[in-house]
Design a protein around this nucleic acid. Sequence first.
RNA 1: GCGGAUAUGGCGUAAUUGGUAGCCGCGCUAGACUUAGGAUCUAGUGCCGAGAGGCGUGGGGGUUCGAGUCCCUUUAUCCGCACCA
Length: 921
Amino acid sequence: MEYNFRAVEQKWQKYWEENNTYKVDIDTEKPKYYVLDMFPYPSGAGLHVGHPLGYIASDIYSRYKTLEGYNVLHPMGFDAFGLPAEQYAIQFGKHPKVTTEQNINRYKEQLKNIGLSYDWSREVKTSDPQYYKWTQWTFLRMFNHWFNNNTQKAEPIDTLIAEFNKNGNMLVNASCSPTPKFYAEVWRGMEEKERMNILLNYRLAYRAKTLVNWCPNLGTVLANDEVKEGLSVRGGHPVIQKPMLQWLIRVTAYAERLVNSLDNLQWTDALKEMQRNWIGRSQGAEVLFPVKDSNLKIKVFTTRPDTIYGATFMVIAPENPLLLKITTEQYASEIKEYIENTKKKTERERQADVKTITGQFSGDYAINPFTNSEIPIWTSDYVLAGYGTGAIMAVPAHDSRDFAFAKYFNIPIIQVVSGAEITENSYDAKEGTMINSGIIDGLEVKDAMTKIIDEIEKRQIGKRQINYRIRDAIFSRQRYWGEPFPFYYKDDIAYPIDENNLPLQLPNLDVILPTEKGEPPLARLDNWKTSEGYQYETSTMPGFAGSSAYFIRFMDPNNDQQLVSTEANNYWQDVDLYIGGTEHAVGHLIYSRFWNKFLYDLGYVCKDEPFKKLINQGMIQGRSNFVYRIKNTNTFVSYNLKDNYEVTELYADVNIVNNDVLDIEKFKMWNPEYQKAEFILEDDKYICGWAVEKMSKSMYNVVNPDNIIEQYGADTLRLYEMFLGPLEQSKPWNTNSIEGVYKFINKFWRLFFDKDGKFIVTAETPSREEFKILHKTIKKTKEDIEKLSLNTSVSAFMICVNELTSLKCNKKEILEPLTIILSAFAPHITEEIWQLLGHTTSIRFATFPKVEEQYLLETQITYPIALNGKTKFTLDIPIDFDKNAIEKEILNNDKVKQLIDNKTVIKFVIVPNRMINIVVK
RNA sequence: GCGGAUAUGGCGUAAUUGGUAGCCGCGCUAGACUUAGGAUCUAGUGCCGAGAGGCGUGGGGGUUCGAGUCCCUUUAUCCGCACCA
């Protein structure tokens, strides 16, 4: 009897749903384990075969952990708000609410078809008011907190106000926007508006006018991680820099903690490195350079204060307001022109021609505080306004960009570190002895660094300083489909709405385009106001808002009193295993760590870091198929004959190709153009060409899991996705070898049935050999699952079933444990067998079998016998033989004698349990 | 330019972590059963060679009794970052 996967899989999926088989609750009797997938944004295209790779791996792991006795939290939800959802809706002229719901339903159906063990009662959708209530709630909390650098913690804004009343901001060491110093009397004398504006400089969620990435085509501002090479990640539209009043979150406050706690996470080095690069911690000094004949001072940040004697000019970023102040009348028009030209350039253009050197002299000079020489002040767009202080001391001898600039504009170059010639290139390495360097002359770079900073601090012209590349995250989007900000405006000042009135619901809007004046869509509403008539914020939160704490909400998703109850949080704590794609390496994974640390500081969550272990699954690429049409004809020629003709390569849908053999009938039906096509075959087949490319509709290489499941079943799909190769490796999808896994499922089934479909499992006692096969498999698969080496466990299952088949083993004592371990991978067929074996509850509640080492003991070892390291043959030797006994044994062996012949034996290398090597001359 | 990863049969991959290279699967070859086969089963399948045997883990060099694995060097591909002072 053939295994009817369609009936069996449907039967159990229905059973699981009806019996809430995968529902979990707090159970203090059991240890917890939290396995999380990065929840998807439900796109209109549905899932392709690449998406479930991580979901299947995490599902196998969850099921395994459950069998091992853990109480496993394994939830799923949808990242439903955001730009792409809105763009998709606009494209199809529908409301995002409608399309999002449709897409979610489609996703859920597809996920359920795969037999994933999610506890759907915990599903969250970021666009659900009951969910985003807590996103808004957290944002309000950020608004009401500041970051105390002394304690390295977020603290309530009231403590800061109290301090302002007492001492002004004179003693405050906060992570804040630049704020002038003031005394308590000054603070007390301020109007409310002024106070509110000052507090904004300290709040962890704040509003400020900053230079933003403005994307005209999308009509919104984007965060740094949403922009790549000056183009928007979504859609690839140009992005320009523009000052705008925006909501931001002060991620920079946590930069130090975000870098430091990376060390203890079980993430890949590659991922940690990406985060470190993104945070971009660099250590150096801030130094003041006085401007000649003026009270003005230019503050620079440098990581190379040791080279200060070689600073022969200064460069100020064109956007830096200081530039116009120091520019002399004579150069005013040139400088203005340079600033204008810079403004006109998009970020992309600015990055594109890095090699073109441009700049303009300001006419003014600064005094190098160590050489006391006058050095010219220039402006150039290679200095960025947003990093450091927006001004640099240029040391051409030891910085390649400064070097190129100095060469181009003929500015003197003074070498201050010995170690290399600097005629052609600068010498950037932090190694060598200081020369031409006054008080630090003769010191090594490292020592020079310490001494010069000490001196700078002593002279009070600067200080040690750590700078971060990471910027505060711009949090406003001038779009509709996102969480509304829980704020209203009175006299242009933002006031939070009462927490009891959360959620502030996203109002319905028929036309979700910007207004004629370019305001966000919500500005179309006349009644987007408080009951007192104050205007609500019209922009909405970005996509990463909703994904920053969903892993916390999953612990207690239906709680309408709290984000998460203390009880639930103390039990589930943190994510033990997080699986998702690398594309979130710096976006989501930075923001959610920040978000979590903030909630941790406030005591709402018990763990400082949310994701203990993180795995990036590899990308599944597409494998496209091609057909070859002879030019100007409707005749297609098979792959190996195509070189005899002049042909055009055309895509053929991979779904009508099997093992690179084209299904000609389906091909004719696929496109009306090909209906009358003719074919030149080889061996009566049409062979297609192929290439590995991105999985995409336009390349006709998208494989839908639904089709695979329809043809082979969900268990086969699950096993096959794992069988493809290591989880973390990127690989092309190729349906070709799925047959092998499908055969395996059927072969497993046949262990339980005879030819007539009679269930033939017996209670007979298994042989030692059968036990050995079983326990070998238990051991191997257990180790492999723990390492997430799931491809090799599939192959271990195949070996096991092959061996049991050849032994014609149908003994319950062997097959039942095997069924349990396989159930993590193939839950449907094993659930059916489990029932046939007489069980009345789901196999999910079974226990993972223990390895019994006694069955794995050998009596003999098969030793490879090598001559000079080359294996010649193998020899069975009893396991309890020691080195001497082995040597005696092999010396008496005829084959060994023959091998040695009349050569001189130099030595025997005998590694017990491993191998024997005879070294001869 | 900087950083990271990878490289093994016709293809996807495996290798007890320095000890028999190629497990498992696809594909291919031959055969059995069969009305039929895109079912199932059996045997074979790294390359060269009739064979003995030789060669073989991107290339070159090294350490070692022994290297896919360690070290040096080099090449190719992929990914990330990139005027960050």
